[in-house]
């Protein structure tokens, strides 16, 4: 599992962002280290602390570093000269909060550094999509849509895909928590799955992308199409259908 480092001017800001992200995952989250503040309650960043944080979470699968702004970025780049690990270390330009949440979910599902970084960098997409909807009905951001993703599904394979449609019954639709649950659930299954909102015509998006799923903005009573290919396609579909019919555990008991 990759390691994650959070660099901020403010320890409180970093801790709160990490806490928010950890709400999305279970008992065994990825290794996350915070390098925030300049010591003694002083707002700022310290490249040596960042390097120590990188070394602390490096376990062979790479480290993704989030930074808030300004000197955090300078300290992040400088830290790569001080660290001792031979792990690949990626300084991501992903948005601090949205990117961290997306990254923690995907890292927890065992994704590789490249995939987690890409997901984190696409994390503004969900918000942009939600807000642009009001004016121009823009579709999902390109980098989470299946058409432009590196693991695009060839049409020849897609034609053999198993597809089912289900109606969302949980009160808030595919918001962050159900989206994270889907990413987690699919992590161990040998299948490539997509989700589209049939009601709004949005998607398909990759079902292993928290941000992609959230960018659909799928609401209660929307009909969504789950599509899967691969050896365990049926297993993936069955699970998605079950989760949907159970309202992702969000139905009032």
């Amino acid at each position: 599992m990759i390691g994650i480092v959070v660099v901020s001017h403010s320890p409180a800001l970093a801790q709160a962002a990490v806490d928010l992200a950890l709400e999305m995952v279970g008992e065994t989250p990825p290794a996350i280290a915070i390098a925030a503040g300049a010591g003694e309650g002083i707002t700022g960043t310290d490249a040596v602390k960042v390097a120590q944080a990188i070394d602390e979470v490096a376990s062979g699968d790479g480290v993704l570093v989030f930074m808030d702004l300004g000197s955090a970025v300078l300290s992040g780049t400088m830290a790569t000269e001080f660290m001792t690990t031979s792990d690949e270390v990626r300084l991501t330009d992903a948005p601090f909060v949205e990117g961290l949440i997306a990254a923690v979910v995907l890292a927890n599902a065992g994704a590789a550094l490249d995939d987690v970084d890409r997901e984190a960098r696409a994390a503004m997409g969900a918000k942009q999509s939600q807000l642009s909807d009001r004016e121009d009905g823009a579709s999902v951001p390109e980098n989470t849509a299946v058409d432009s993703s590196p693991d695009v599904i060839p049409s020849s394979v897609a034609s053999a895909a198993i597809t089912v449609e289900e109606t969302l019954i949980n009160p808030d639709g595919l918001h962050s928590r159900p989206a994270a649950a889907i990413v987690q659930a699919l992590a161990g299954i040998d299948a490539t799955a997509t989700i589209a909102d049939v009601t709004t015509g949005k998607g398909p998006v990759r079902a292993n992308s928290l941000i992609g799923i959230m960018s659909l903005g799928a609401k209660k009573n929307d009909v969504v199409a789950f599509s899967a290919t691969g050896a365990a396609a049926q297993q993936a579909i069955d699970m998605l259908v079950t989760m949907t019919r159970e309202g992702f555990g969000e139905l009032a008991s």
Binding site: G39, G44, T45, D46, V48, G70, S71, S75
Partner: peptide, 18 residues
């Protein structure tokens, strides 16, 4: 340089440190 990196806090730390 190292002392500045670890004690300044702001962007001047990595810049003067460098």
């Amino acid at each position: 340089g190292m002392t500045l990196v670890t004690s300044v806090g702001g962007a001047a730390g990595p810049l003067y440190g460098t």
